[in-house]
Structures are given as C-alpha cells and as structure tokens.
C-alpha cells in the first residue's frame, strides 16, 4: 500500500497550539507541502509576526523569523536583499497585514519585492481575544464592535487582494477560502503559484485566504466554515486578481 497523504517533513513534530477547527493549521500544512514539493526547504526562510501564528517558528522546519507586529514584509525585504537567491515568505494575519502593517505590505508590493505573503483573513484579531479587524464584516459582532461593526462609525472592511493587485510590483495576487475541499485544493494551488512567481523572480506574490476563527466567532468549527461561505465569500470574491 502506498501512502497518499502524510505529514510533510517541512513541518516539525511540534503539535499546533491553534484552537480546534482553526484555519491556521490547514494553511501551515499547505505552505509546508508546497515548500517540500518545490524542493526549496534548504533555502527558504519564513517570517511570522505577532498574531496567532507568532509561534510559526516552532512549526516550520526552515529558517524562521519572528517579527514585530505588521513588519514582516520589511523583515522579509531585509532577508531577501541579503540572500536574493533564497526564498522568503511572510505568514500574516489580517490584524497584522491590513491594519498596523498596511504600509509595509503596500510598499513590499510597490517595490516588487520578490517575497511571498500568506495572508490569513479571518475577519478578526484572534490572539488578543476577538477584537474588530479592518476585515471584520459590517454588522459582525466582536469584542470591540459589540453591537456589530457600524460602517458609519468605522468604515467598511478592506479588500487587500484587490488593493495590492493594482500595484505594478505585484506579480501574483489571489484570494481563496478553506470552507470546502474544492477551495482547499485551490488554496494550495494558489500558494504554489505564489511561490513559483517568487522563484521565477516575477515580483511580489500574495495569497489572501479566508479562514475560520471558531473561538472568536463563537461558532462550532463546522458552523464557522458555513458562516465563512455565506458571509465572507460574497464580500471577498475568490479568484486570481493578478497573474503576470
């Protein structure tokens, strides 16, 4: 019998600390598998800033950085400029990338920095206990929008994939979701394309991944996936926004 599905060696054997049903673990596996399949693990470095994935250095068995909140694209720029022949990815949440780190991600794309960003959009700040993020949907209740996000008070959610796709330095920008097997397959395919765009030196690449946060959404894992499909996907259309 052949093994057709097995844990990749690019993941360490440290068990994930993520909540049951969290999307991070799924995406960690995909990123690690892509690194293995592209045969680049020995020359890959990852940068994970503050957020639920801040402990990613325990999970990816490659050179890893932990970066200050929002600054992973700048840290990755520093690494990549020193080792242009190596591969570098950032793994960021929506609070990190779409809020405090907006300047860094926009300018990494603007410079056409040859890095790959894995952007987990779960419409909330996870690690700090469920606060409203720039990607929180209108009407969505969080610990800092207890009556539901009010767009007249704090605007409507930000669509990062579309925004970054308008920047010339972006070579590959896609948005996918984790709510069913078809979308899981598309997510991994997009991650692979993003890394391939980097390796081919085409410029900046990012995959925005709609991901569930059962704990802070106050939903069971299955319900969270359904809520994601019914509420997030309509507002955050899936697909490849840019491919050079």
């Amino acid at each position: 019998m052949a093994t057709i599905f097995k844990r990749t060696s690019v993941l360490t054997d440290v068990p994930f600390h993520y909540c049951p049903g969290c999307g991070h673990g799924i995406v960690h596996r995909m990123v690690a598998e892509v690194i293995e399949e592209l045969g680049i693990r020995e020359k890959t470095a990852g940068v994970a800033p503050v957020g639920c994935a801040v402990f990613a250095y325990n999970y990816f068995d490659v050179d890893m950085y932990e970066a200050a909140h929002g600054r992973a694209p700048a840290v990755a720029t520093g690494y990549k400029r020193v080792h242009p022949e190596n591969v570098c990815f950032t793994y960021q949440g929506d609070g990190d990338l779409a809020s405090i780190g907006t300047a860094e991600i926009v300018h990494a794309a603007h410079r056409g920095e040859k890095i790959t960003t894995i952007f987990i959009n779960n419409a909330i700040y996870g690690m700090t206990g469920g606060q409203m993020a720039p990607t929180t949907l209108v009407g969505q209740k969080t610990t800092t929008s207890p009556l539901g996000r009010d767009k007249d008070h704090c605007g409507e959610p930000i669509r990062m994939a579309e925004m970054l796709a308008t920047i010339n330095g972006s070579a590959f920008i896609a948005r996918t979701a984790l709510n069913n097997t078809a979308n899981l397959n598309k997510t991994k395919a997009a991650i692979k394309k993003a890394f391939e765009a980097q390796i081919a030196g085409k410029g900046f690449s990012m995959v925005e991944i709609l991901s569930p946060c059962p704990t802070n959404w106050g939903k069971a894992p299955g319900e969270a996936m359904d809520w994601l499909a019914e509420n997030m996907i309509p507002y955050y259309p899936l697909g490849i926004m840019k491919e050079v």
């Binding site: 840290v75 720029t77 400029r81």
Partner: peptide, 19 residues
Amino acid sequence: LQAESEIAAINMVYGASGA
C-alpha cells in the same frame, strides 16, 4: 534601500542582520 518609513527601515535591518 530607501524604506517607506523609519519603522520599516529598522525592521529591514532586523531582517538583514538576522540573515
């Protein structure tokens, strides 16, 4: 590299020094 801000610059230093 001219960074987008001094904050980005010091974090690029973090990346390059770490490399």
